[in-house]
Amino acid sequence: MTTPLLSIRDLRVRIGDREVLQGINLDVPAGQVHAIMGPNGSGKSSLSHVLAGKPGYTVTGGSVLFKGQDLLALPAEERAREGMFLGFQYPVEIPGVNNAYLLRAALNAARRHRSEPEVDAFDFLALVKSRMQLMRMDESFLSRGVNEGFSGGEKKRNEILQMLVLEPSLAVLDETDSGLDIDALKVVAAGIQTLRAPDRAIVLVTHYQRLLDHVAPDQVHVLARGRIIKSGGPELALELERRGYDWLLDDAA
């Protein structure tokens, strides 16, 4: 068996005095889509943040290997350049930095990391425009400030656009489906589907089954109270949709 793209072992994390992750074990092989579901406050976003390297979390134990290397030893920007992408639950507005600049700077940072030449301005524009078309975003978004004045749905689409331009090996999408209407959900789902490839993996952190109707997961995990309490196939998501989480929580307790 080949090494998983992402391998998490007994990961324990604190915010201040509170242990938000209490021993996570998770393997995500290349080529697969995994969904992480769970009730509010179960640690889903904490896990996403820790993987991306957000400050404010203290790892007290365990390990995370990404492509066989110690992910937690890398600063956030190097994780990104290695091919780790976090789709934010709440994308940040940055007035004064335009979208096109961010996209190009991000793409070039990754290319320099791989010892590839910087992207030519013409090729870049062609690439971005084709991806924007896919995400049904108007080209005027390029010259606007990053997420500045975007609606909730536009911000989520912009996250997926960034992902499609950067083509990461591992995308962790933190509640990318929340706050989307049906049409936007379909567009976002189509964007995610585009990224599926044998050498990539996607982790969908979500509350709801509905995204999984469009992006079928290979594995579904239930995260509760800082632990993965159950894993299964796509049918688990359907069962959760039907029965909620309580039966599992009772079992776990």
Partner: peptide, 8 residues
């Protein structure tokens, strides 16, 4: 963090 998470 948002910018760093994009590799800058």
């Amino acid at each position: 963090f948002y910018l760093l998470s994009r590799g800058l």
